[in-house]
């Protein structure tokens, strides 16, 4: 089959088209101030991702940013998975050399994945949101899975129990003024979650990954507003001072 443009269209959110991108990325519906979403995302991350992927620069107790206290973090995240201390980094025990043999490539560290996956085609969040919803069945791949956003990816579909299975099916899509036949993944075997619930879960996970990539991002913006407000006032004062000093220069 000729693989042309492959669009991931489950619920058809706004599509972010941009030059140089093979796959148009879906806009990730995330809100960095939505604490319940971030907490659900953190739980998904620790449950599903943190077995093969590390987050070597992120400490468990930083999750206090998400409205959790250290006891909750210790009981729900650290004790159940690594049994370490609440201030530990999110490391994994899997050997990277083994991982390379099993998957063909060592699973990358995910601490700053949301920043490194940014491109001129869209934000890192958009890419991750598209990617996590883009797995489909492909018998030619060693894992049995392929991905529309990351062709021939080494990673199998870890969330398949939640999403179910997708297969590529030809579909009509409105291109610029004409209808084009493209292939897009279509759900063939439902999972535990409905498509809507699955998108919501992936959005939570992506929301968390974006938070983890730069935990200071929200305080950066808050402090930034205060600094700009202060500087605005200062500009008026200094302008008045300059005017008064320069009134005799002609």
């Amino acid at each position: 089959m000729i693989k042309k443009i492959i669009a991931v269209l489950l619920l058809a959110p706004a599509l972010a088209f941009a030059a140089g991108s093979d796959v148009p990325l879906d806009r990730a519906p995330i809100n960095p101030n939505d604490m319940p979403s971030l907490q659900r995302g953190a739980a998904l991350f620790v449950n599903y991702c943190l077995n093969c992927h590390s987050a070597n620069y992120m400490r468990y107790n930083r999750l206090t940013d998400l409205g959790l206290n250290e006891k909750e973090i210790l009981d729900n995240f650290v004790a159940r998975f690594s049994g370490g201390k609440v201030g530990d980094l999110m490391k994994i025990t899997m050997d990277l050399e083994d991982a390379k043999t099993w998957f063909g490539a060592a699973p990358p560290d995910l601490t700053v994945i949301a920043r490194s996956r940014s491109s001129h085609a869209g934000s890192g969040a958009d890419w991750l949101y598209t990617y996590m919803r883009g797995f489909y069945r492909d018998g030619s791949r060693p894992t049995g899975w392929n991905n529309v956003a990351f062709p021939n990816v080494g990673m199998p579909h870890v969330l398949w129990g939640l999403q179910g299975e997708q297969e590529l099916k030809p579909a009509q899509r409105r291109a610029e003024g004409y209808m084009a036949t493209v292939e897009k993944p279509v759900l063939t075997k439902p999972g535990k979650l409905s498509p809507l619930e699955y998108d919501r879960a992936v959005a939570d996970l992506v929301n968390y990954l974006v938070y983890m990539a730069e935990p200071a991002a929200q305080s950066r913006k808050t402090i930034g507003m205060l600094v700009l407000a202060f500087l605005t006032g200062l500009i008026f004062l200094v302008y008045a001072m300059k005017k008064s000093y320069w009134k005799d220069v002609h």
Partner: peptide, 27 residues
């Protein structure tokens, strides 16, 4: 004092633009 006060204005305006980038679009 003429250019020290005038440059102070330049510094504050520059700081404003600099902070816009640094706090809201550091990349």
């Amino acid at each position: 004092p003429y250019y020290t006060v005038k440059d102070s204005l330049g510094v504050v305006v520059f700081a404003f633009l600099f902070c816009m980038v640094m706090f809201f679009a550091p990349e």
